[in-house]
Simulated assay, not measured.
Amino acid sequence: MIEPLASAQMRVRDHLLAPDTLVRALASGRRKGQRPRWTRVELRYVDLKAGRRLQITRYDETQAHVSNHGPDDAPAAVAELLAEPFGNWHVETTAETVQLRVTKGGEAAVGITAGVAAVAERAHDRAKARMLPEDDPVLVALGISDAKGVVKPTRRAKYRQVEEFLRELGASVDDALGAGRLAPTAEDPLRVVDLGCGNAYLTFAAHAWLSRVRGLPVRLVGVDVKEQSRAHNTEVARRLGVEDQVTFVKAGIDDVVLEETPQVVLALHACDTATDDALARAVEWSADLVLAAPCCHKDVSRQLRSRPAPAPYSLLTRDGILRERFADTLTDALRAALLRTRGYRVDVVEFVGSEHTPRNTLIRAAATGAVASGADEELAALTATWQVEPKLAELLG
C-alpha cells in the first residue's frame, strides 16, 4: 500500500524503539538523486551488563562502525538514521515483517507480512556473525574445511573471500527484496546464474546462503566452458543433495542458452573481456541484480599502450606498471558508466582485502529502469579523452 512517507517512518520508528520485539532491521539503497552517508545500516538489541541496548552497525565502503545506545539516546540515533535518504527499510519483529520502499514520488510503498519472525539474538559477545559457519557441508564438500568442520590453514584466504562476497550478495539481495525488485516464491524461485563458475566455490556458497540461511527459494545455474568443471560440479551438487536446485552447463559466457531468464547474474574473476561478455549478457537478460569481480584488464591496457595519453596525463601511462593499474581503474569506470546508460544503479567497491586476493574490486549493479542523469555525456567524454573503445560498448551495440 502507498502512504505518506512520514507516517510510514513513524511505524518503522516505533518498531526500532521496541527492545522486546525488534528482531532485526536493515536500511539500504538510496532515494532518487540522493545518497546516504552509509551503504547500509543494521539494527538489533543486545543485552549488556548495563542493560538492553540498541546496537547500530553502520557500513561504509570499507568497514563496519558499531555503536550501542541506551533508552536516553536511542531515539535520537534512530531519528538520525530515518533522516538519511535510504531507499528501503526491512524490519523484522516477533509479530510481523515490515518492508518500506520510498517511491520516485517520495511516498512510501509499505508491505506487512504477519507471522512470527526469527527469535531475536541478544548476546553482545557472540562470535562474529558468519555468512556460512566453518562446518557448513558446502565448505567441507568444496575442500575449504576439513572433515571436522574446521577451515584448512591453506584455505583461509578462500574462506574469507567467500564470506565477504556473501556479505555483498546478501546486502544487494536484501536491498532488491525491500525495493520489491525481487519477490521469489516457491512457484517462481529466485533465478541466479554464475557465469564462468570454474570450480563453483561461490556458486555453491551463494546457493547455500540464499536457500538455507536467507530462506529463499532458489534455482541456480553455473556456466563454464570446461566439461571437466561441469562434471565435477554436478557431482558435488549430487553429494550435497541439491542437484534439483543447482545445475551446471558447459558453454561460453557469450553463447550460453538458458531455459529461464536469470534475475541475478554473478561473474567472479572472469578474465579480461570475459567480464564484458558477462555484463553484456546481464543487460541482454534485463537482470535485476549483477555482481561482477573483474580480472586482468588487458584490453584497455593494450589500447593505452598504442595511443598517446591526453595532456597533461602522459605520466600515468609512461611506465608499464602504472599503465596497467590505471587501465584497471579506467576499464571498470567505463563498465560502470555503460551500465548506468542502460538503466542500472552502479557501485564499484572493494569486497575483500588485497592481502587475500589482488582481484578484489566488485561491480555491483541494480536495475532501476531509468538512465542516470548525464550518464551518456560522461561516458562520451571519458572515451574521447582517452581514445579508447571499451569492449562492453561494442557488445552492447
Rank of each mutant, 00 (worst) to 15 (best):
H124L: 11
L166P: 03
A141Y: 12
G111D: 11
A27S: 06
V41D: 00
T103V: 00
R342F: 02
G180R: 06
L268E: 13
W285E: 09
L202Q: 04
D188L: 02
A27E: 03
V348C: 10
A79N: 12
V193Q: 04
W89S: 02
V264F: 14
V12T: 11
P133Y: 10
R122F: 08
E377S: 15
H356W: 11
G320K: 03
A206C: 00
V242Q: 12
A6S: 05
C271G: 01
V102F: 03
A365I: 03
Y344W: 07
N233K: 05
P133K: 11
R307K: 03
N199Q: 08
S314F: 07
L268I: 07
D125E: 09
G149N: 08
C271K: 03
V223P: 00
Q228C: 00
A251N: 13
S67G: 13
G196E: 07
L166Q: 04
G343N: 08
E324K: 01
R230V: 12
L182E: 07
R126H: 09
Y344Q: 08
R44A: 07
A108S: 06
R126E: 11
L43G: 03
H207P: 05
L330D: 00
L315S: 11
A327W: 02
N199S: 08
V249F: 01
A183Q: 13
L48D: 08
I56P: 03
T97L: 12
D255S: 06
E260I: 12
R53F: 10
A337N: 14
R58M: 10
T93V: 03
Q63R: 03
E61H: 07
A251M: 13
T21E: 01
K128Y: 05
K49C: 01
L54T: 05
G374P: 15
C296N: 15
E3S: 14
K298W: 04
K158G: 14
S354A: 11
A18Q: 08
G196C: 07
R181I: 00
S306T: 02
G33E: 00
A274L: 15
V110W: 07
I363G: 15
V138M: 11
A287Q: 04
P390I: 07
V192H: 10
V246N: 00
S172N: 00
D288C: 02
A337L: 15
P390S: 06
E121H: 13
I112L: 15
L132K: 05
R167A: 06
V218I: 12
R323N: 03
L258H: 13
I2W: 14
L266Y: 09
L182K: 06
R24W: 02
R238H: 13
H269E: 10
L289R: 09
D272G: 08
D319Q: 04
T62I: 13
L81S: 13
A336F: 12
A8I: 09
T383Y: 15
S172I: 01
T317G: 12
R101M: 15
H69E: 09
G397H: 15
L379R: 06
Q263D: 06
A186Q: 01
T21A: 01
Y201M: 12
V349K: 10
A237E: 00
V116Q: 10
Y59G: 06
L396A: 12
H69P: 11
R126I: 08
E394R: 07
K104Y: 13
E187W: 14
R160K: 14
S306M: 00
G143K: 04
L100E: 07
M131I: 00
Y201G: 14
R302M: 10
A366D: 07
R31L: 11
L142E: 00
L279G: 01
